[in-house]
Structures are given as structure tokens and as C-alpha cells.
């Protein structure tokens, strides 16, 4: 499964600047929704038909009593075997052969949204309440098929988000995890064999976001 594209999201380099979140909105022409400050930097509260990427914030205390603050730039994993496709019958959802991007067509309006969502271990697909079309991250398909990198990767100042050939991304992930393990024994690449959008974490994935890793 080393063909096609992949995206590496190295949370150990992320500063939660929200460049990725905003760049995604800008490129896809999505709306800013009305939100409230609920006691967190995280906003909006969830993915939606207007939000394909959210930086999740999670905080707590470590064993030594010192605080931690983890950032998780959440979006669709572009699985190699997408669970959301389980209920699709007629190419409502397609996987691009060359890149591996998992794409929702307008025909997704005919799918059972609840069932589609159940199939996704990462709680990603969302539905436009009016048109009923399903939406999520497109891997910036229109950009990557025109020699550009995804908007989120382009905006990321620290190189936390990297886009490239899958085999190169897998190699980079492996190397980075090895390096990080010197300081963070729990460092890991999440579900690297199953997904194209691979997260690197330095702690238990559940501390970042409940859907960070598939069970």
C-alpha cells in the first residue's frame, strides 16, 4: 500500500496556530459559523459541512504535576479501505486511483448518513442540512492534481503537515518516531498502515482526541 499520496501530521511540531483550519476554509470557500467561547481555544466545536479541519485542544496534568497541552489538527484520514464506503453502492464515494484521495460526490445526498458515519472509525463524515450532500476533507484534490500541495500543508509554518508520495511519508514518519522515542517513549504514528493522513503523537492518542486512533 505504498502507492499514491499521503499526509503526515506531526503533532510534535504543531503550535496550534490554526493556519491549517483557516487555510482549509479559505481554499474551499467555506463559511465561518457563529460560535461561542466555551472555555477553550478550540472553535468551532465540531466538524461540519462548513468545517473540514479543526485543531483539537486537549489539556491536563502529567505525572509530575506539570501541565500538558496537546494539539490535534483533525481531518479525514483518507483510509486505504474507507469504512464510510461500506454503505455506498453506486460510486457516491470514490477513491482516486492515482492519489488515493477519498472523495464524496454530490450523489452522497442519497446515502444513509447515519450508517455512513457509523462506518467511519474517526467520526469524520458530515452532512449539509439542506442539500443532504456529505462532505469532508478532499485532500485538496483540485490542488494536488495541479502540482500544488494541500492548503493546510502550505500554510503550516513549522512543517508539522507534510504532503508527499506515500512511501516517502511512511519513511519520514518512521524516522521521526524513532527520534522522538528518545525523549517520548510513547511516540507513535497512528494507524499508519490503514490511513493516508498519518498522525505522529508523543503520548497516549486518547489524550489528544477521542477519535485520534481507530480502536
Amino acid at each position: 500500500m505504498a502507492e499514491g499520496k499521503s499526509i503526515l501530521v506531526d503533532t510534535s511540531r504543531c503550535t496550534a496556530c490554526r493556519g491549517c483550519q483557516i487555510a482549509c476554509k479559505q481554499w474551499n470557500g467555506l463559511q465561518g459559523t457563529h460560535t461561542k467561547q466555551a472555555g477553550s481555544y478550540e472553535n468551532p466545536g465540531d466538524l461540519s459541512d462548513q468545517t473540514y479541519k479543526i485543531v483539537r485542544f486537549a489539556e491536563g496534568k502529567n505525572g509530575d504535576g506539570k501541565p500538558y497541552w496537546y494539539f490535534f489538527s483533525e481531518s479525514c484520514r483518507h483510509c486505504l479501505s474507507p469504512g464510510c464506503m461500506a454503505v455506498a453502492e453506486k460510486d457516491e464515494i470514490v477513491v482516486d486511483e492515482k492519489t488515493g484521495a477519498v472523495l464524496y460526490t454530490p450523489a452522497t445526498k442519497d446515502l444513509d448518513f447515519k450508517e455512513t458515519l457509523k462506518g467511519c472509525p474517526y467520526n469524520i463524515p458530515r452532512q449539509n442540512p439542506t442539500t443532504k450532500v456529505l462532505s469532508k476533507c478532499t485532500m485538496c484534490f483540485d490542488r494536488i492534481t495541479n502540482d500544488l500541495i494541500p492548503a493546510c500543508a502550505k500554510s503550516c509554518p513549522t512543517g508539522a503537515i507534510q504532503f508527499g508520495e506515500r512511501d516517502a511519508i511512511l519513511a519520514a514518519a518512521k524516522k521521526r518516531v524513532e527520534e522522538l522515542k528518545k525523549t517520548f517513549p510513547k511516540a507513535a504514528a497512528l494507524d499508519a498502515d490503514e490511513v493516508r493522513l498519518i498522525y505522529i503523537v508523543t503520548d497516549d492518542p486518547k489524550k489528544y482526541w477521542k477519535y485520534a486512533a481507530a480502536k
Partner: peptide
């Protein structure tokens, strides 16, 4: 005045 930015950071805290 910018909707994506105010969505991300809406109110004083």
C-alpha cells in the same frame, strides 16, 4: 470583521 477568524476566536475570555 473576518468570519473564519472570529469563528475560531469569538469572545473575550
Amino acid at each position: 470583521w473576518q468570519s473564519w477568524l472570529i469563528e475560531a476566536q469569538p469572545q473575550v475570555f
